[in-house]
Design a protein around this nucleic acid. Sequence first.
DNA 1: AGCACGCCGACT
DNA 2: GTCGGCGTGCTC
Length: 739
Amino acid sequence: MARILRVALPVPLYTCYDYLPPREAWPEQAGRGCRVRVPFGRGRRVGVVVAVTEHTEVPQHKLRPAQAWLDAEPLLDAPLMALLEWAARYYHHPLGEVLDAALPTLLRQGEPAQWRLREHWWVTEQGRNTEPDALNRAPRQAQLLARLQALGERGLEASELAQMPGQARRAARALADRGLAVSAEQASPELLQGEGVETPPAPLDDQQAVLDHLQAAGEGFQPILLEGVTGSGKTEVYLRATEQALASGRQVLILVPEIGLTPQLLRRFRRRLAVPMAVFHSGLNDRERLDAWLAAREGRARVLIGTRSAVFAPLPEPGLILVDEEHDTSFKQQDGFRYSARDLAVMRARRLGVPVLLGTATPSLESLQNALAGRYAHLHLKHRAGGAAMPSFRVLDVRGRPLREGLSPALQTAMDAHLAADGQVLLFLNRRGFAPTLLCHECGWVAECQRCDARYTWHRRAGRLRCHHCDSEQPVPRACPECGSVDLRAVGQGTERVEQVLAELYPDVPVLRIDRDSTRRRGAMDALLAEAHQPGARILLGTQMLAKGHHFPDVTLVGVLDADHGLYGADFRALERMAQLLIQVAGRAGRAERPGEVLIQTHHPEHPLLHTLLGSGYDAFARAHLEERRGAGLPPFAAMALLRAEAVQAGHARGFLQAAAEQARALAGGGMQAGVMVLGPVPAPMERRAGRYRAQLLLQAESRAALHRLLARWVPGLAALPTARQARWSLDVDPQDMF
DNA sequence: AGCACGCCGACT
DNA sequence: GTCGGCGTGCTC
């Protein structure tokens, strides 16, 4: 009855591999959830033990012993392992790769699950018995001694010395010289200690209602959609709910979108809560990520704030999960293991039996439908802080109007008025660069990317043509390569071009352009934001980046330069996205004494979205749009999965999908999976991208269960199709966009 | 995914 | 006569 280790390996295979235990002694606690180093093929891999069993289908001669235990006790606890196995099944993705996505890089590479060694300071025996007041000639030393005495065996991390007033490091060395303190290297995580200096304001009625709801719900699973406009105090609710969970000795996980929201939220949390916290986002290096992960796992971090992958952080004492801006698309991983961190957060909360709070001003239709169907509690924050009024919306019909680089006369008039009153103006244009098209006026030639079905964007300042879909760029031609004419013209507007015309129209007003190009340099974003918060008239001009997170209290006018693109997008989610964007952009503006005004330029002023959204608000729009989705049988009233494929050779992607489609249809037609439609394959909306031809196959079902039954029987066999090796392919369950 | 093994074109 | 193309088979 030899024991066998079943190991998930980071390879795109749907099978686990069985190994004999390492020859070394078996650590008492070792088992499922531990990493092992194993021989695999002619190399070595780090895998995770998913089961210890006594039976194997593998012939004895094939079994090789694992090389070594990398963890003496489970790195991933039972609930987390179970969640990851569930996720692998739900997304029909190999378990080894799912586990890989859940682990920090260093752990994937086999590093020990240990904190970095850091310099620490402690009191000595002599220091413990010395009255700090005895050092009255050296107040800094006295202060530090008192602190070290209070910390006792925990000690003080040297990096915290830097944050203390005065030359704390010198004081520490002086204490050491007196024999009162000593320093040494000790393994510890880098934790942010909350200051807890801010006194909480009294909660408003609707905020209190959310907290009461949480309290009444007790400790069980309780999904809540928390809908509140910008400035309605969602963060205050997060803070209070977090305090409640911390008070009962639990940890709190907070998921935030990718764009720089973290610093602001973190600042609020640190000012308010006097507990150790950790952050987890893409800006950290590998060591920092590992430390944060371990701090969560050891329970040292009581609050963990992180982006998408933080949903997999280990939490020994979970009490609450918060998802901020739950509608944000960055919660969906867009390659490899395409999970939705928001959906997994809800599933994790359910399995852990803890509440989960989904906060947003503009709920995703998925979450809204869950709320309307009674699966989630639906709570609202109605009041803007300080009684600020919601901004007023107005549609500017630009049909037939003379546009100056995309600015209508009516918008300019409004800008004049707001700037004259010392207000700030925010202009939103979701297109960076100078112009999206460079055109030869003589022959009609258009500069196009060689590797994509897309036009080059002219970046005038950089003097380059850049493709926004691959990384290619080239110098701007002096003359048309087709006819030799030098009359090359910019068609359409990007932020760079609008910036230029604004400088001409308003020579005395600073214009701040905020897009990926202007914020690429390190620190550039912070500098621009600091400048934006200066008093006095300013024009802020930017892309999507501007719509998220940052609030500009002095902005009184928001102009959306081009709403038309979002109104007729190819994707069935285009309208939902557009509505969310408009409300989010509008939310950047205004405060109590100066209600904001939002002007939306469009060639389609009669569009029903604009009518409903602006006339009756996001909720009315969302409910109406849900009914359209229901009528059309689209999500959230249908379940979808998208099989994408791409290949350098035209036809290879399509060929694979064709074969895959035949198998799917055979399965769907077999009666077992009635109600699953197999649509396609069709070319991707932009067929060629970065030199590859792309195509996709859509599976759509009325019932999630039926879809998943088919996927379970279909997906594992796809790799065995003869055409599978001619294309790169991936399955996207619950795709968020169709491109 | 890697990485082998294994059969057909242009090179020292 | 060999070096190397990528087809297909396997990894416990």
